[in-house]
Write a protein that binds this DNA or RNA. Sequence first.
DNA 1: CGTTCCGTTGATCTTAGTCAAAGGGGGTGG
DNA 2: CCACCCCCTTTGACTAAGATCAACGGAACG
Lengths: 243, 243
Amino acid sequence: MVTNCRNCWLRNRPVFLPMSEAELDFMKDFKTGELKVDPGTTLMLEGSNSPQLYTVLDGMGLRYKTLEDGERQVVSFVMPGDFIGLQAGVMDEMQHSVESTTSMMLCVFDRRSLWRLFQDHPERAYDLTWIAALEEHFLGEQLAVVGQMPAEQRLATGLLRLYDRSVALGMSKGPWMKLPYTQKDLADALGLSVVHTNKTLKALRDRGIVNWKNGDMEIRDYEGLADLAHRDPDADVKRRPLI
Amino acid sequence: MVTNCRNCWLRNRPVFLPMSEAELDFMKDFKTGELKVDPGTTLMLEGSNSPQLYTVLDGMGLRYKTLEDGERQVVSFVMPGDFIGLQAGVMDEMQHSVESTTSMMLCVFDRRSLWRLFQDHPERAYDLTWIAALEEHFLGEQLAVVGQMPAEQRLATGLLRLYDRSVALGMSKGPWMKLPYTQKDLADALGLSVVHTNKTLKALRDRGIVNWKNGDMEIRDYEGLADLAHRDPDADVKRRPLI
DNA sequence: CGTTCCGTTGATCTTAGTCAAAGGGGGTGG
DNA sequence: CCACCCCCTTTGACTAAGATCAACGGAACG
């Protein structure tokens, strides 16, 4: 059964273009169904090997690693169009956990059909590799953020990135975006303590740059934020196509 | 011309097994030659799009990103078997730079043949995706290291990882390994200042845990180091196959 | 109506960064 | 062969960014 599958990577790359007849046929072959999950559901568990792979159709979540001492590193935020479970599919087990923070709608694939995809659909296999390379790119960026930037710049960079993605995905038109995370989630992503994250956030709020209330974030001064992030004004144009 | 290509991912996955007839034929098709570079050579430049992709046959190097303000984040250390240029091959440009720190021997491929690989050699395409996923895995680990660990633990984790790889690649049998990097390189990888890296290193030396002299590193107390890294004793067995 | 989770804030402490200066080597040129 | 220089390492003194600790407020929820 193929239902509406917007924002699915199998549909196209990048995730926006319309689906062709051939692609629809293809979907019939691979998609095994859709899955709706509640907030707080663990979709993938570090060290496990899920038989199912997902594409996010709707909702948000996060990927994280847990360290021996209980600390948590949020590896990335999950948004519509993201592919979940590549590691489980191609290596033998997941290296991080994935959890929903809102309710999510997922497009479900069978892990075992992945090899068939490589054999019969080289373009899609290529897309998959493209996705993996993209993921690698963003992890590298995040590593640079956490490794080299002071708190304020980290926060600005992180919020900006979330907002840009949100806009790119058509989830926000104006200055508002859904941000269903806790400050602890943000802190764990940026490598900061909750307290310091909160204080840094307050500083941004006091300066009228952002406004975060009840899971909704308002970017009141995009330029100012980009400035705090030390972002090269040209670079974001260059980077725009990479969501 | 196909010459000796040990440690090349195209040869096999993981990089150790012997090459079959079919694989030799395959190599003839894709390998365009070998390249020897001096220390300090920039192999890939962030933002550029190299027409050539490489596999490291011998020597060591590093990948890094440069931030707007001149800071540098070392993204990973490059060792034999590593594939260089996946992003250039599959996306449109490199997202980080790659530089040799010793002289290196490289196996050269043409970027344009990558698509042919996906069409005609699905197993190899699969391997390539596997490599990308592996890279993603290690970046995630490094992110957790930089984001959550204090200096000493970061250093211990980093050195341990370098040593384990070195052993896995057959480059060290005993407690010694080649470590041709500067302390600044290490600091930029761990998100620390050189000064603090140096002091932390001295502490390890004073406790007889490691000994680093003239580009050679001696792991004098592996257990002690693993302890400082808070490494789960079982985990390294699990992680061993992933180089 | 208590409990729990999250956000907020202040006080204090520690880790790691910055600044500065002094030792090596190893290479190059006089 | 020596001298100088450059790059890297090492060390100490000082500073600051951010962590930790602690306490309170509010909203959601059973």
